[in-house]
Amino acid sequence: MQQGKIYDSFTEATADIFDGATLVVGGFGLCGIPEKSIAALQEKGVKELTVVSNNCGVDDFGLGILLHSRQIKKMISSYVGENKTFEQQYLSGEIEVDLVPQGTLAERIRAGGAGIPGFYTPTGVGTPIAEGKEQKQFDGKTYLLEEGIVGDFALVKAWKADKLGNLVFRKTSRNFNPLVATAGKVTIVEVEELVEVGELDPNEIHTPAVYVQRIIVGTDYEKRIERRTVREA
């Protein structure tokens, strides 16, 4: 059942994600990942995905589960080192990877969502990632041309949404999510809490509703922690 932008099942909210689609996915490590939407994609069995995400989960959680079921053809990421499945599939040539510096990745997603097809950055000049890229001098300094990214679908995890799709993120789970929300032809947002229109203070909205096409409430979030570090009292 769908009411406005609100969906009541992850299966329906992700139903039209097709084989070969490009997905832009929020999260940093396992923090702020759309864990329920990812699980729905595994169940759906959609294949040959190109996934743009800073990381690729761990072996049995987050995007790692889509690697395990061999649904990902290509990853565009800044760091994939937490995942043994990834390493095996990369070394056997089953998966392609395009490593992009984290700030460049963030800006490519931001630019894509903002209608900017390319931009120049100093990041990567003189390194292997500069190969094949246009370079240009500004004020005597060299910069690389990098291109904006737009996905067929964007998968976002927010803390709260109102029923129009205005979003609020919590602490460092914000990370790539607000950028990702702007960079999907269809943006699917899973949230912990859905509130009535008017309950969110307009001053505090991180992502305005215009970017959001689908909203769905997730329950029983696992929110797995990669490195639990504590201090003694």
């Binding site: 800044s78 070394l91 984290q102 460049t104 100093p122 990041t123």
Partner: peptide, 14 residues
């Protein structure tokens, strides 16, 4: 195995 550069390339240039 190349794990990725994370944010290092941006940091050293910025």
């Amino acid at each position: 195995m190349v794990k990725g550069m994370g944010g290092a390339m941006d940091l050293v240039n910025g």
